[in-house]
């Protein structure tokens, strides 16, 4: 069946000459009427946009831009990254939810995509059902870092110390309702302790206060902490993933320290609008897998992220688990956005 495309738009060609553009402008209407999509079950001609719900320059944006080139090559479409910041990711997410389910509009989501809906009682959409899942792209375990002046070396000692000095220990996070915050509250709940949350705006300033010894604990990416661990200016008590990390195989996980349910993993994943045909999802997923070459995986690993494209069903499964975990903790400690 031949259906006319609803969004007829001419994107400027990357290297078109001035004349070409002037003529495009002059004959725009002609080309508009002749542009048609052939079939529903493959991505229509034209660029595929990866929507990032953050302003340019953040780690999610940069990862999307890292994948942009290889993904475009594997998919055979030009790929653009569009930043749609605002509403703590609601604006960008809503944009994708309302887009045509033809594979041309994707969302590069993070933990926040799911957290928003759970934390905020924001029920305009549910990322589990109102979006199709293309695949998780990158994951990262966090580390529980402590300033040496606190005098603890393990999770057990931290718990003991916190119980002996209630209200005295604090933890810094990159922001209210961030994964770092949730991870800290999950530790509070799991170990039945009460360490005070001190939110910052971004991991950088929080880390500075941790290094300076104003903050006691921070659960954060271990990226860039290497020097501080080596010199003893910071201590790594545990990592937060379900398994130990490749970078610190000798450091136990929080789960190993006696809280088997505990897991806090940061991830970035591709979503598409609801009811995107399965063939298109598969096409996108296989292009992503193709794009994640060993070389790229290795390069990305340097930034602390493990690049590994999961299958769509693995992503759905993973999100369901995450949602349950978050819901439980939020019910228990009552964080709100």
């Amino acid at each position: 069946m031949v259906i006319p495309m609803k969004n007829n738009h001419s994107y400027p060609k990357g290297n078109g000459s001035l004349w070409k553009v002037i003529s495009t402008m002059a004959f725009g209407f002609a080309s508009v009427t002749s542009t048609i999509a052939l079939a529903q079950d493959s991505i229509p001609d034209g660029p595929v946009s990866i929507n990032v719900a953050y302003a340019p320059g953040g780690s999610t944006d940069l990862m999307a831009r890292t994948l942009q080139g290889p993904f475009s090559e594997a998919l055979g479409h030009s790929v653009v990254v569009e930043n749609r910041p605002g509403g703590s990711t609601i604006i960008g997410t809503t944009h994708v939810i309302n887009a045509e389910p033809n594979g041309q509009t994707l969302l590069y989501g993070t933990n926040a995509t799911l957290l928003n809906q759970i934390l905020r009682d924001y029920d305009d959409y549910d990322p589990l059902t109102d979006l199709s899942h293309v695949g998780i792209a990158a994951t990262q375990s966090l580390g529980v870092l402590a300033h040496p002046s606190l005098g603890v070396d393990t999770i057990e000692e931290l718990v003991e110390h916190a119980r002996a000095n209630p209200g005295d220990v604090n933890f810094a996070s990159s922001g209210n309702a961030s994964l770092q915050h949730i991870a800290g509250e999950m530790l509070n709940a799991a170990a039945d302790i009460d360490i005070t949350h001190i939110p910052y705006t971004g991991a950088g300033p929080a880390m500075t206060d941790l290094v300076a010894g104003r903050a006691d604990i921070m659960i954060t990416s271990l990226l860039g902490a290497g020097d501080y661990l080596e010199s003893g200016q910071l201590k790594l008590l545990a990592t937060t993933g379900p398994e130990r990390t490749q970078a610190y195989p000798d450091v136990p996980t929080v789960a190993e320290a006696g809280y088997p349910e505990y897991a806090a993993v940061s991830y970035q994943a591709f979503y598409a609008p609801r009811d995107t045909p399965e063939s298109i999802i598969d096409q996108l997923n296989s292009a992503l897998s193709q794009a994640a070459t060993d070389e790229l995986v290795e390069q990305v690993l340097e930034t602390g992220l493990e690049l590994h494209i999961t299958s769509p069903s693995e992503m759905t499964e993973f999100l369901r688990n995450e949602a349950e975990r978050y819901e439980a903790i939020i019910e228990e400690v009552g964080i709100s956005l």
Partner: peptide, 27 residues
């Protein structure tokens, strides 16, 4: 000197270092 970015622009520059396998930090 600290390897801790103060602003988003600085975070991006550190990101570039890390992609090339150079870990920022006091060393």
């Amino acid at each position: 000197a600290l390897g801790i970015p103060g602003t988003a622009s600085m975070a991006m520059m550190l990101g570039v270092l890390m992609i090339h396998g150079i870990s920022p930090g006091p060393s």
